[in-house]
Design a protein around this nucleic acid. Structure first.
Length: 908
RNA sequence: GGGUGCUUAGCUCAGUUGGGAGAGCGCUUGCCUUACAAGCAAGUGGUCAGAGGUUCAAGUCCUCUAGCACCCACCA
């Protein structure tokens, strides 16, 4: 079998994805009551969106959790779906229309909605296809869309239920209004930004007087809507004027001076103009004083007919300029100050938001929040990282009513109908036939649609078929894990908790994992305008989904921001290649027929290797492998995927490839003496490889499946489908994706073996170091002398000197307890072992002394610290016993090393 | 204005009940060693932001200071 020298993800990934999907591996394997399911809900991407790096991170994390639990043989379900994304999607289509100079009003509601559906159908599957390329193992047979028939039904059900419970009401209110999108925005949809602006000081003349009050304002154009000026009732400067009237400039209206506690005496001049229809605070003041609500702007942010004619239909900012000019002309502008204040912008189009008085629908949130607070407080729902629970609680405790109506056309239309004759409002799923009040027969449905989040907050059960009673709903709710970004804690996470408690009497999920945003190499947010946001599909086409996934996870500590850059991507790409080549080495060196034959003799069942596992390297790699299984398993469970990735890379690359495979070469090629030994090496190589692929599969599903399948295909005798190895794993599953996750065999973790191996390894490293110091070419073999300190070491080194020769490129080794230091030589010290590299020519004794002197100082320092501790009575009294034992062991070790160094020094 | 975090190697960051300072990338040096140059080998590099405190012991806990980030909020 010929394998490509460089791993080619393109030839691998598509093939396996189709295989998995066709075999139905993404579906839960059972709905058996005795098994505990593992369920994840996808945060639905915009149906017409395209994949960006944030999606990559988010969905990779979900897929890892899903694949891990699937391999743990739990019934596993990842429900996919997309969101209709009201404003965003409608904007896209309106933009298209604008190219042909058509507005939505030209074609009307029905036609626009039709066009958006067309647009949706054309773009809708795009992001789903992209998620598949990323490897996401969602159950596509359960895919939903927020405007599917059933989900629409669910939305209506929820609306009506809440309306009947008096938890939804219609009211007039000052809301945030985007004049460009021509719709209300929820508080969460407004982004505040500190901007340098101006504070204009305007003179308002007193009626029948030459005196005036000075009013400071940041929005002079709203003075057209002023209905009063307010001062603090305790403000001595103005007390006497309360109840008097002012002549409002420009509009030329008479307005009263009123007193209200809201006014801060120390800000500006202490006088506030009151514009109830265009400022939320003023609205409140207006209510208290029973003032008119004079609306002077239309829905596009242009001045309306309630203002003087010359401003009619002018944009608010144009009007502002003109008003300022006019005030200057009339000498009514006292002064202009620079002023920094926070200006709200539309999160969709960045237009400055206008406070606007209009009819809107609201959900009363307070009654819903109580249980939602409790379930988090009591730990029924766990939020990671934990600090976000505070954020959640703060919002919940200060919750406000939720404005759910939007003045757009794309979305779930509010199920409220108005009788055309008597204006009676009826809330119902379908248009009523007859008005219960007047008997009228024709009705008009409310024009507004619901906030997109109104269909998202019921996601945990609408996706499972509610309001129908489905087996899914029964079995998979509450779900196990929600993975999302902290920026939508309020918008989505908190609301799902409230809705699911209200409608299902259950929590929606047990655990919430919040991850950070993806930044570029310089720590900047990814954004279109910066041009630092790469197309993930390009990356996948280039290096493969595995490399992308691994790189993302590797750089994403739990709950932290992650960083993406091309260098980071190389980590994953190079790792793929490393794994691939390790496998290539196996294929090139292990005889297929022999393995197959030996195997069919059943000689490789459990027990065979154990009996023959006499080699240190074999024992060591299994010791390490099992430790790694244990740790990786914990990391996956604790959602510490980056730790799992890091550990796996370290194990496969450093321990398996750099040490075990290198040592295996010695046995495979240099001394093929004992057949069983050699056979053992071959088997261990295969076994560790296949076990590693299992561990790695959740993060790198494609390359792991490819290699696992190739091992089966090449090495498994057809007549014997089970290859039982020391890892205790057979390979009789049809695919790795549904194979068992490895289970740790504690008895194979062996500290003694580990330390024997590290002694050999340290020895080899020291020899290489000596060579390097002398600039000896890697092509040249050297001779060394090893002075050992006891018989155990003697046995160990005698037995495994082959490794030292091979890995240290050593020809002759003279070793023993009595080995003598050659007269002219370089020296290195490993624990209590002395390594000499004899020199033919001159040796720089001074340089050698200096090196050893440094070591000596370091060791002495260390020893002093340890002995200081041990002499400290308080330490002995207070420290835990195991710490003291550890310190004593350390003392002995350091002292031994120091002695060895001193010994060598004295001989020099 | 309120809140939450962050400050550890040149860069980006780990460091989970306090007990031997880590990773990736970068850098230096030498190697195409028969799996891999997307590689191998050997190295360099840190007053853990600053000050104080608790403790036998502090990167880790407490207080303060400085700098930074993010979130929330109606200051005209």
């Amino acid at each position: 079998m010929e394998l490509n020298k460089i791993y080619d993800a393109n030839q691998v990934e598509k093939k396996w994805y189709e295989f998995w999907d066709n075999k139905g591996f993404f579906k839960p394997n059972t709905l058996d009551k005795d098994s505990q399911p593992f369920t994840v809900l996808i945060p639905p991407p915009n149906v017409t969106g395209i994949l960006h790096m944030g999606h990559v991170l988010n969905n990779t994390l979900q897929d890892i959790a899903i694949r891990f639990n699937r391999m743990k043989q739990r019934p596993t379900l990842w429900i996919p779906g997309t969101d209709h994304a009201g404003i965003a999607t409608q904007n896209m289509v309106e933009k298209e229309l604008a190219k042909e100079k058509i507005t939505r009003h030209d074609i009307g509601r029905e036609k626009l909605v039709e066009k958006i559906w067309e647009y949706k159908n054309q773009k809708g599957s795009h992001i789903i296809e992209q998620l598949k390329q990323l490897g996401c193992s969602c159950d596509w047979s359960r895919e939903v869309f927020t405007m599917d028939e059933n989900l629409t039904e669910a939305v209506k059900e929820v609306f009506i239920h809440l309306y009947n419970k008096n938890l939804i009401y219609k009211g007039k209110y000052i809301i945030n209004w985007c004049p460009r999108c021509v719709t209300a925005l929820a508080n969460d949809e407004v982004e505040h930004e500190d901007k340098k602006g101006k504070l204009w000081y305007v003179r308002y003349p007193l009626e029948n007087s030459s005196e005036y009050l000075i009013i400071a304002t940041t929005r002079p154009e709203t003075m057209l809507g002023d209905v009063a000026v307010a001062v603090n009732p305790n403000d001595e400067r103005y007390k006497h004027l309360i109840g008097n009237n002012l002549l409002l400039p420009i509009a030329n209206r008479i307005i009263p001076i009123i007193a209200d506690d809201y006014v801060d005496k120390d800000f500006g001049t202490g006088c506030v103009k009151v514009t109830p229809a265009h400022d939320p605070n003023d609205y409140e003041i207006g209510l208290r004083h029973n003032l008119d609500k004079l609306i002077i702007m239309d829905e596009h942010g242009c001045i309306n007919e309630n203002a003087p004619k010359e401003y009619f239909q002018l944009d608010r900012f144009v009007a502002r300029k003109m008003i300022i000019e006019k005030l200057k002309e009339e000498n009514l502008l006292e002064k202009i100050d620079d002023h920094e204040n926070s200006v709200g912008h539309c999160y969709r189009c960045d237009t400055v938001v206008e406070p606007y008085l209009s009819d809107q629908w609201f959900v009363r949130m307070k009654p819903l929040s109580e249980r939602a607070i409790k379930v988090v407080e009591e730990g029924d729902i766990k939020i990671y990282p934990e600090r976000w629970t505070k954020v959640y609680m703060h919002w919940m405790n200060n919750i406000r009513d939720w404005c759910i109506s939007r003045q757009i056309w794309w979305g779930h239309r509010i199920p409220a109908y108005y009788c055309e004759s008597c204006k009676e409002m009826i809330v119902a799923k379908e248009m009523p036939d007859i008005c219960p009040k007047c008997g009228g027969l024709s009705f008009q449905q409310d024009n507004d649609v619901l906030d997109t989040w109104f269909s998202s907050w019921i996601w945990p059960f609408s996706t499972m078929g509610w309001p129908k009673k489905t087996p899914d709903l029964e079995y998979f709710l509450p779900t196990s894990l929600l993975i999302t970004a902290p920026e939508i804690i309020y918008l989505w996470v908190a609301r799902m908790i409230m809705a699911t408690l209200e409608f299902q009497d259950k929590i929606p999920f047990n655990t919430v994992l919040l991850h950070g945003i993806v930044r570029d190499g310089q720590g900047r947010k990814m954004s279109k305008s910066l041009g630092n946001s790469p197309d993930p599909i390009d990356i996948i086409n280039n290096v493969g989904a595995d490399a992308l996934r691994f790189s993302m996870v590797f750089n994403t500590p739990k709950g932290q921001d992650s960083f993406y850059s091309e260098e980071i991507l190389e980590t994953g790409r190079n790792f793929c290649n490393k794994i691939w080549n390790a496998f290539r080495f196996i294929v090139m060196n292990i005889d297929k027929t022999k393995i197959t034959n030996e195997h069919s003799k059943e000689s490789t069942n459990i027990g065979f290797i154990s009996n023959n596992l006499s080699d240190l390297a074999d024992q060591w790699i299994y010791s390490r492998l099992n430790q790694v299984i244990k740790d990786v398993d914990e990391h996956y469970i604790n959602l510490r995927f980056n730790d799992a990735a890091q550990l796996l890379m370290q194990f496969i690359w450093d321990e398996f490839c750099s040490w075990y495979v290198e040592m295996a070469k010695e046995r495979l090629t240099i001394s093929p003496k004992v057949e069983t030994t050699k056979f053992g090496v071959e088997f261990v190589l295969l076994d560790v490889m296949q076990t590693s692929m299992r561990l790695l599969h959740p993060i790198m599903p494609f390359i792991s499946e490819e290699i696992w399948q190739l091992i089966k295909q090449i090495y498994l005798a057809p007549q014997c489908s089970s290859m039982k190895c020391e890892s205790g794993l057979s390979m009789n599953e049809e695919a790795l994706i549904i194979a068992n996750f490895p289970e740790v065999k504690d008895e194979m973790i062996n500290k003694k073996i580990d330390s024997e191996m590290s002694l050999i390894q340290e020895t080899i490293v020291s020899i290489r170091n000596l060579r390097k110091q002398l600039n000896i070419s890697p092509a040249v073999n050297i001779n060394i002398v090893l002075k050992l300190s006891n018989e155990t070491q003697n046995e160990l080194y005698t037995k495994y000197q082959g490794y030292i020769r091979k890995l240290g490129k050593v020809d002759k080794i003279k070793m023993g307890i009595d080995a003598e230091k050659p007269s002219s030589s370089m020296v290195a010290v490993v624990q209590d072992i002395q390594i000499f590299l004899p020199l033919e020519g001159l040796i720089d004794i001074e340089a050698e002394k200096l090196k050893l002197q440094k070591q000596k100082e370091k060791l002495e320092n260390e020893l002093n610290i340890i002995q200081g501790k041990l002499k400290n009575e308080k330490f002995i009294m207070n420290a835990k016993p195991e710490i003291i034992t550890k310190e004593k062991e350390k003392e002995l070790e350091v002292a031994t090393r120091l002695n060895t160094v001193l010994e060598v020094l004295s001989e020099l």
